[in-house]
Design a protein around this nucleic acid. Structure first.
Lengths: 226, 226
DNA sequence: TAGATTGTTAATCGATTAACAATC
DNA sequence: TAGATTGTTAATCGATTAACAATC
């Protein structure tokens, strides 16, 4: 009783973002282990598979409503259940995408979102040529229709998939439509009022990070070539 | 003399990744300012536009071969030049994409990469139906051809854009082809030998982070609804 | 000159890693 | 029992923020 109360209070109170961002990888891995018929895994085994330290794994899992067992580790079925619960994999989050270019379409047609409880319920663009075309079950509509959709349906998350020049105006539209969580795939910082959350997806930033790591653009290396 | 020597040694020595990841946003912003005819910007102005603190901006720019001027700030033209140099925007990085599904195609057709010096020089898939089809100037080829391409051409960066089940085998192929920097867009950790760098692009993780922040899946809130 | 802004050092904050007693 | 593994506390590491003297 008291043990369960204390462990559930642990689970409730604010899990740090770095931990949250690792959980999806745990879930995918655990599902694979389950498929292979494995029933227990230690923090060391999980760490090796995911490129973490066992310390990090134990710290991460300590935020959750779950106990490992000495000498055996964590029970896969239980771990999967707890991860699904924390990640809300069984709860539907309604998502709209603004921008039906290549990226927007790729997202709309990407089945993995639906598997994780993200339901694409709108795809918008400003180009009339695209209106009515269907990608992954969703027909493209004019951006102006976003607001009326949001009046009928509570939209949880908005995805910005337009060129960077249009990103801010799309963010404004989303905020105006009452959307409080935005995933920004555009290559630009957007401003939103307090209370609205923005997370940036950084494909370009990641590429630049690799490019820098390759060192081709280091002044010192360029110099040593001459 | 001595000043320039010390500042260029600053520029050479390893800039931390968090800083590198912010630089592309600086660059985009600075280019916009230039287009607007603005010639100087203070750390405070830049910070406000990018959602940072002025302290962070000054710290970031201190890694670079550049000096601001009291009361005026940083000169836009100079700042742009230094950012382009550090990010290697004028150096061509050769990129291949494995996986010509929606995501791979979106990346191949995404002009922004070329603008930043990333040249897509190969698009591979294992589905024969796609062979020869062209997306953004690149024709899809069988994955087996990756190695022979890499023998003719030094490939700097490989993009994994396949379903997560295939991610590891694609990573192995890339490593075998001598690629030392991988951007993994698949929803799974991949193992590579030492000396090969992997950066994960985390669209799904970002979505999950937002979903968690929305709090719909919190045990405490679910409880309070009953 | 007075005031704004840089460059940099020091303080804070938070995440990761190490260590180890408890325990199965 | 002996040994492996957890859960958790403490130590380390690194990034961000604050502060302030130097300076234009």
């Amino acid at each position: 009783m008291s043990a369960s109360a204390s462990s559930s209070s642990r689970a409730n109170n604010q899990i740090p973002n770095p931990v949250i961002r690792r959980l999806p990888k745990y879930l995918v891995h655990v599902q694979e282990l389950r498929d292979e018929g494995i029933t227990w895994a230690s923090s060391h085994q999980i760490a090796d598979s995911l490129g973490l330290t066992s310390s990090t794994v134990r710290q991460d899992l300590s935020h959750m409503d779950l106990s490992g067992i000495s000498k055996k580790g964590y029970e896969i079925v239980q771990l999967e259940a707890v991860l699904r619960q924390i990640l809300g994999a069984d709860i539907v989050h309604r998502v709209v995408i603004v921008g039906a270019g290549h990226l927007g379409r790729a997202l709309a047609e990407h089945g993995a979102f639906a598997e994780r409880g993200f339901e694409i319920c709108g795809l918008f663009d400003r180009d009339p040529v695209l209106f009515g075309k269907t990608f992954g079950d969703v027909a493209v509509k004019p951006v102006e229709d976003l607001k009326s959709l949001s009046e009928k349906l509570t939209i949880d998350i908005g995805l910005i998939a337009v060129p960077f020049q249009a990103a801010q105006s799309v963010a404004d539209l989303m905020v105006d439509a009452g959307i409080r969580a935005i995933l920004n795939l555009a290559y630009k910082h957007v401003h939103v009022p307090k209370g609205v959350q923005v997370v940036d997806a950084r494909i370009m930033e990641s590429l630049q990070e690799l490019a820098y790591a390759l060192g081709k653009n280091r002044a010192d290396q360029l110099k040593s070539l001459t």
